[in-house]
């Protein structure tokens, strides 16, 4: 018996390296202005899925919602060991908050069909909300195990995992199918060289037609042939629009987001009555004496 595991991943802006035009006037993120990376805890989720694949045999499908360029993280997932990839991409998804995101992903999971496990990273570094996993579990009416460190046992009907709790851990058991969110408790494997050579050619249909257009190559028949060719070699990344996964566009993107950004303020540092201390023994001794004198210390 082989399992089918969906891993939902996210391409995120590298929040460590942010430039000034990172935000649009409507308060949403201008992703184009930022370097994009594979969300770190999603790599941990992928790693758990690949460990299950190694141990029990499984087909691992990596899925993401994002703009056409988000296909990059799907290729990265395939370099590491994912068997298939699905990109959920549509303008109707733009500006989604966590509720609208989880709705869209739930439609995608239903479209992909039968699965035994869904794994997600606990949270993405661009928002740190940790909400999409639990919301997706609710939308799909799945049992939810959050903050998973390790999967101890997988069998036909159930999964046993160790998860982090406040001040300790729990071992819990849930029937399949189930959803887990995964924390930074494993060492994600790097890309495998052989897989990289193979899957760097993987393309979404959109990317393929863009490549053709860029080359001023307009033969529709040739495009269709190449698409079939990629598909037969397992190199075609599935791409779904909102209508293809049966999503109600009143529930996606900005339409489907109950939270609205009222205003954005740039961070203004409040001026404090600040005193600079010389970084030498005399300066530091004086500071310590001052703090003892006013009873802050001692």
């Amino acid at each position: 018996m082989s399992y089918k595991i969906l891993v939902f991943v996210k391409q995120v802006p590298d929040t460590q390296n942010i430039s000034g035009d990172a935000m649009k006037p409507d308060g949403t993120v201008n992703r184009a202005a930022l370097p994009a990376i594979f969300n770190p805890e999603d790599l941990n989720a992928l790693e758990l899925a690949l460990q299950l694949k190694d141990k029990y045999g499984a087909k691992v499908v990596a899925g993401t919602m994002g703009p056409p360029n988000a296909a990059e993280v799907l290729r990265e997932a395939m370099y590491r060991g994912a068997d298939e990839a699905v990109l959920l991409s549509d303008r109707a998804f733009a500006g989604a908050d966590t509720l609208a995101t989880s709705y869209a992903l739930s439609c995608c999971a239903n479209k992909i069909g039968k699965y035994d496990l869904i794994l997600c990273g606990r949270q993405a570094i661009d928002g740190d909300t940790a909400q999409v996993g639990p919301q997706l579990a609710e939308k799909l009416a799945l049992p939810q195990i959050s903050y998973v460190e390790e999967i101890l046992e997988l069998s036909k009907n159930k999964v046993k995992a160790r998860r982090e709790i406040e001040g300790g851990y729990e071992v819990v058991e849930a029937p399949l199918p189930a959803l887990m969110t995964v924390i930074d408790a494993n060492e994600p494997r790097p890309a495998a060289a052989r897989r990289l050579m193979k899957y760097k050619k993987a393309r979404t249909p959109f990317e393929l037609s863009r490549d053709h257009a860029n080359a001023n190559y307009t033969d529709a028949e040739a495009l269709a042939v190449e698409q079939e060719n990629l598909k037969s070699r397992g190199l075609l990344i599935t791409e779904y629009s909102a209508s293809e996964v049966g999503a109600d566009i009143q529930r996606t993107g900005l339409n489907g987001s109950p939270t609205k950004v009222k205003k954005i303020q740039n961070v203004v540092l409040k001026a404090t009555d600040s005193k600079m201390i010389e970084a030498n023994e005399a300066g530091i001794t004086e500071l310590i004496h001052e703090l003892i004198a006013d009873h802050t210390l001692g």
Partner: peptide, 30 residues
Amino acid sequence: HKGRELGPRVASEKLAGLTADCTELEIDDF
């Protein structure tokens, strides 16, 4: 840990918005 896994599950069913890790809360018009 509990609040962050429970809150979204409740919000999702209720179709309510949920804002994580607020540092201030106030009442005002929008």
